[in-house]
Design a protein around this nucleic acid. Structure first.
Length: 546
DNA sequence: TTAGGGTTAG
């Protein structure tokens, strides 16, 4: 609730003048979104018989929406003696703005029922509400209304549609609307770029940005934020650094959103000190910025730095949320700081947070990695009556493998098998664990089960960036024209490192492969292919930034 | 007599 200046419970306007002497509209403006005052005005309007005055009622209802009193606003509307287009379109736009999408649709239906013609403002609001509700059908219906009522070339409505389809994952439709726009606004470009990135098509997001630049369309901060996310997704450090330089040399305001996107990009691309550099020069830090930086430290094994930053955050009075705690616990797990992790989990309640399954997974992972296997197993079992999720068992299984405790590993694997019988990734973990425990008949059983169910483990990828272009490799990938050269070069490299003492660790891919196959899979692992390609295509030292 | 579509962490 916002603070209301002057007084809290009674209206005193302009010194001694009474309520009746002052324009009710001015009182309403002054009441702002203070619900108590709005109700007083409401009562006043009723007692002075001005309740039928629609402009006043409209202002009252939209103020109630902005105060979060959506049901009160709805009652006001339903009790109105008459309704006009101003009242309804105001309610549609205000409910959309203040995040009451169901009510936006509700008032829009009332508009249609009363044959009130929507404007482009109405359409943008209703489309945004459909996006919030992830309601494809509602959005498509509104899209039809848009076309039928001649808003096919309205810049605002079309941009809202691009955004809607992109958010809901219908990228082809989004692109079609985008392509057919007579005038593409910056917002339409940004919606399309962000849509690609949010749906896992970072390459397309980056391409579209290049297209935008080549066409001479001026991009803005929001474009760069989505572009940075795409860089983070693909490891495109060079392009991400270009964005940073661009921001600095064009004096673009480094607000908390842009700053956080830069921190995230540098962290994911492996440059934590640059990430911290950005964090340090930002003027404003919200919980997302803090969490991103803590998470950046954590993912690179800098547990102490993550904990120090977390403590600094708390000392400065910033409130962590559940994501912050996931970042902290994960950092502790990777750095072996289980004491710190335990303390962090214990203080969640001080911030009215309850540990969820993701936090428990971190704890199991933390004990497991630290070699405290029985503690981890105990923790996992004590999660009852909340049944441990497969993620908990997977974390524990990884720990059993890491610490070569195969007996416990098999026990855990059995739990995993029961918990999620259709996950191909788990089958591979299971069969590896059985193989390590020497239970070959079970390996056979798991493998057969996998084949009979037609399950296949999703393919993993490795990416290397050369000249601002990301190159993607999967294991044994032979799809490039340079494939033979890459393999030849890789063979030479492997020969050299073998001479230097390298022994392939074929246990790591035990999934019932013959010895020869094992070595093939290890040798042509996607990371190795990507690195060989990178070394081939760059001058000595360049790939490592030397 | 009102008001708009795009951007950050797991």
């Amino acid at each position: 609730m916002k603070n209301f200046p002057h007084s809290s419970n009674t209206l005193s306007v302009n010194g001694n003048r009474t309520l009746a002497q002052v324009s009710p509209y001015r009182i309403l403006l002054k009441a702002g979104s203070h619900l108590q005052l709005l109700k007083q005005v409401h009562a006043h309007l009723v007692t002075t018989s001005r309740y039928h005055h629609l402009p006043l009622l409209t202002k009252l209802a939209t103020s109630a929406v902005s105060a979060g009193a959506i049901l009160y606003a709805q009652k006001l509307f339903l009790s109105a003696p008459t309704v006009d287009s101003f009242l309804l379109s105001s309610l549609v736009t205000t409910t959309s703005k203040f995040d009451f999408p169901l009510h936006t649709i509700f008032f829009y239906r009332h508009m249609l029922a009363r044959k009130i013609s929507p404007t482009n403002y109405t359409y943008t609001s209703v489309i945004k509400a459909s996006a919030k509700l992830k309601d494809l059908k509602a959005g498509k219906v509104v899209h039809c209304h848009v076309l039928a009522n001649g808003f096919r070339s309205d810049e605002f409505v079309q941009a809202a549609l691009v955004s809607f389809y992109a958010k809901i994952g219908e990228l082809e439709i989004a692109r079609k609307v985008f392509d057919e726009m007579p005038q593409r606004s910056i917002v339409a470009w940004n919606s399309m770029i962000s849509g690609y990135e949010q749906n896992g098509f970072a390459e397309e997001a980056i391409s579209l940005f290049y297209e935008m630049r080549e066409l001479g369309v001026q991009f803005d901060s929001a474009t760069l934020v989505s572009l940075l996310s795409a860089c983070a997704d693909t490891g495109a450090l060079e392009l991400g650094s270009w964005v940073h330089e661009y921001v600095k040399s064009n004096a673009i305001n480094l607000d908390v959103v842009l700053g956080t996107a830069l921190i995230n990009m540098y962290s994911k691309c492996g440059n934590v000190s640059k990430a911290r550099g950005v964090f340090n020069v930002m003027n404003e830090h919200n919980v997302v910025a803090w969490t991103t930086m803590i998470s950046g430290y954590g993912m690179h094994g800098y547990g102490k730095e993550a904990i120090d930053l977390f403590r600094l955050m708390l000392n400065l009075g910033m409130c962590p949320n559940e994501v912050t705690f996931i970042a902290v616990l994960s950092a502790c797990a990777h750095a072996g700081l289980f004491q710190e992790g335990r303390e962090a989990l214990a203080i969640m309640k001080d911030y009215s947070l309850v540990p969820g399954m993701e936090h428990h997974v971190c704890m199991v992972d933390m004990f497991g990695r630290a070699g405290l296997l029985s503690e981890a197993f105990q923790y996992a079992k004590e999660l009852n009556p909340v049944q441990p999720t497969p993620a908990v068992w997977t974390a524990l299984l990884g720990a059993c493998k890491m610490h070569k405790n195969y007996d416990l590993g098999v026990e855990v694997a059995d739990n995993l098998f029961v918990a999620e019988p259709d996950n191909a990734g788990h089958y591979v973990l299971l069969s590896n664990m059985y193989a390590l425990a020497g239970q070959m008949e079970r390996v056979e059983m798991v493998r057969n089960a996998m084949i009979s169910k037609g399950l296949k483990k999703p393919v993993g990828y490795s990416i290397v960036e050369i000249d601002q272009r990301a190159h993607l490799f999967s294991s044994g990938d032979m799809s490039r024209p340079e494939s033979m050269a890459i393999l030849q070069f890789l063979d030479e490299l492997i020969q050299q490192i073998k001479e230097a003492g390298y022994v392939p660790f074929s246990q790591a891919i035990l999934h019932e492969l013959e010895e020869e196959e094992k070595e093939y899979a290890l040798r042509y692992h996607s990371e190795k292919l990507a690195i060989a390609f990178g070394l081939l295509k760059t001058s000595p030292g360049e790939l490592l930034g030397l």
